[in-house]
Every structure is written in C-alpha cells, then in structure tokens.
Design a protein around this nucleic acid. Structure first.
Lengths: 190, 190
DNA sequence: TAGACTAGAGAACGATCATTCTCAGCGCCA
DNA sequence: TGGCGCTGAGAATGATCGTTCTCTAGTCTA
C-alpha cells in the first residue's frame, strides 16, 4: 500500500467516523482500525490529529458541494432545487447535520486550520448561492434558510424542515421579482 | 453557604465556562475553581457532569427565552423584533452561537437528558414564534431564518446576519398578508 | 468539654487518548 | 549472503479528567 492509498483510506475512515460520532469522540486508534493503516503510517501522513481533521473537512467540503452542484445543475440551476437536495440529504440514514457546524461546536476555540476550513466551506456555499441567485441579498437570505433547515433537521430528525425552508425561498424569490403574492395557501385566489 | 446558594454558584460558573469554551473543554475542576464550591459539594449537587450540563442547558433555555420574550413584548410582540434582539445578541462580546446547537455538535450521540434539553429548547422557541405569528408555516419559516442567522453569525462573527434574516422575515410576513411586494430595494417605487 | 457529624482541600484512582517508542520481520541492494 | 532501512503491531508514555477517597479542622450538641 503506497502513501496515497493510505491517505485515501485514512480520509475515508476519518470521514465516516468523525461525521458519525464527532471528532472528539473518535480516537486515532479507531481510525487506524477502520482504515487498516498502521498508526506509524497514519502519523506519517498526518502529523497530528488536527491535521487529519482539517483534511477531513476540506475533503468533505469538496464532495458535499460537488454533490449539491451536480444535483442543482441537472435541474437547470434552479435555486429551489437546493432545497430538494437538502431534503434528500436530511433523509439519508446517517444524517447528523452539518459537519462544519458540528465541528465548530466541538471546539471552544477551534485550531486555526480547522476554523479556516469551516469558514471556507461557508464562504464557498454562500458564493455558490450568489452564483445561482442574481440578487446578493436574496442569495444570502436563502443561505440563512439552508443553514437553519440543516440545524433543525439534525435536532428534530425531520427532513420536512427542508420543505419549510424551500417554501420560504420560493416566496422570497418571487417577491424579489415583484410578483404579487396571493394570500398564502388559499387555492381559490388563483 | 447552603445548598441552594452552592447550586446557584455552580450553575452560574457552569454557564460562563460551558458557553465560552464548550462543555468538553471545561473540567469539573474549572467549575469548582470558578464557583468557589468544593468538589465534594459539587458532586452532592450534581452527581455527574452530565447532570450539571443538563441543568445548565435548562437554565439557559429559561433565561434566553425570557430575555427574548421581554424584548419582543416591549415592541408590541412584533415578530420582526425577534431579529433586532438577535442582532444585539450577536454583537455581545462573548457571543459564540447557540449553546444548544453547540452542545448538540459536541456529543456524537448526546446522553438522553441532554438531548431532551436541546430538543425542548428548540420546541419552545418554535412554539413561541407560532404564538407571535398566526400562520404556522410562516412561523416555522421565521424559525429557520433565526437558526440560520445564529449559526452564520457564530461562524463569520458578523452580527449583520440578523439583518439579512430580518429582511427575509419581513418579506415573508408581508407576502403572507397578500401585499404586493415591489422589486426589492428600489426606494423609488413607493 | 467530649464526641459525632460535616465540610473543604487536595491527593489518589482509573480510564481515555494523542503521540512516541520498541522490536521483530521483511525486502532490497551490493 | 549480509546488512540497511522501512514496516506493522502493539506496548509505553504522559497528559487530561471524571470521580472518589483521605485527612484535617472545625462546629454543633449534650
């Protein structure tokens, strides 16, 4: 097993374990066992646990955003598709909320590399939404809805938080276009 | 010092320390030092650390919601006042996000009492918003905005996340009343 | 004043965990 | 073939921390 494969296996194991149980609750020994990579090699690839955590977050950021981008792009880059994707995510078996928010909560004052990875993720997601929604303010409003839905879905376990946020997003987008919004949920007023 | 005063001091110290540094990062010894209550007494009041954490969360829930309720009530129970209150909170010196979301992130699988305290808090806040906003769906949308703004303010450090969410809330409330929303942010179209 | 209970200070215990060290084995090159 | 260097397995180290224990010194009661 060469060094790049060891790194891959370590990151795969780290992601599974860190996301499922939290960073603090997972020992390096658990990562070793799950990855099948020896401790010595582990410390060659990542000199300290925090380095592994940082790499885990950076990798998760790429994959998470890639999945979202693909899904939304396949739906014509409709901003509302973001909330459909969220609902699928919330309903996945191992869903435990946003890895970045959880990590932020785990550290009182996160180490610099980890804090940077967390901020980078949120910055990138915000930038992505701004690329989907011409108006900056509306994009930021949708971003807040996303984050809120994610947090609430994690705590309540109810994927329908995505619907709530999606409906709000729809209203915000339409309102911005200057459309007259009928009194909500009354089917008779077409 | 009688038992109730010891309990008060312990909860005061616990809240300061747990909120500022996270639950895991604070040892019982730090709580002892800050509170001035001996370890023996501490364990008489709270047989295990998790009991102290649970009591901390329950107390924080009461105080946090009390502060919000007072502020909003003084403004005629206007739902938008919630976001003004949030902005003040975000700008406070020691602001570190929502204690409950942070605690949720700290534990991979939170102990039952703690999980219950976290869910209780969110349930109560949601119920409060529903009491302010007649329409259940709109109340839940505002709730998602609140949570999102809180998370983002914690990570970015920017209290203006509250403004973003507040503007969205305003649009949602007006849209629900069937008001024609003009193209956003253009002051000329009165 | 004697004695029983209690509190506080802090040592001690036991567990966990990040990180390093030891050692025995194996391949590789001369 | 003989030694060099790298490897994995797992023991050892050192630190932290939740929890309990010990001991000393009151303090209140009879």
């Amino acid at each position: 097993m060469d060094s790049t494969e060891a790194t891959d296996r370590l990151l795969e194991a780290a992601e599974d374990l860190f996301y499922a149980h939290g960073v603090q609750a997972v020992g390096m020994d658990a990562v070793r066992e799950r990855s099948g990579v020896s401790l010595k090699r582990l410390y060659q690839c990542f000199p300290a646990k925090n380095d592994l955590v940082e790499a885990y977050l950076l990798r998760r950021d790429e994959r998470w955003r890639g999945s979202l981008r693909n899904f939304v792009h396949a739906r014509g880059d409709d901003p509302l598709a973001v909330f459909a994707w969220l609902k699928n995510w919330f309903a996945e078996p191992g869903f435990r909320g946003c890895a970045f928010i959880n990590s932020f909560g785990e550290f009182g004052e996160p180490p610099p590399g980890i804090a940077a990875a967390i901020r980078k993720h949120k910055d990138e997601v915000r930038a992505y939404l701004r690329s989907l929604v011409p108006d900056r303010s509306v994009a930021d409003q949708l971003f807040a809805l996303m984050e809120g839905a994610t947090v609430l879905a994690a705590i309540t376990g109810d994927p329908r938080e995505a619907d709530t946020a999606g409906e709000a997003a729809k209203v915000l987008l339409e309102a911005h276009l200057g459309v007259t919004t009928p009194a909500a949920n009354r089917p008779r007023s077409s």
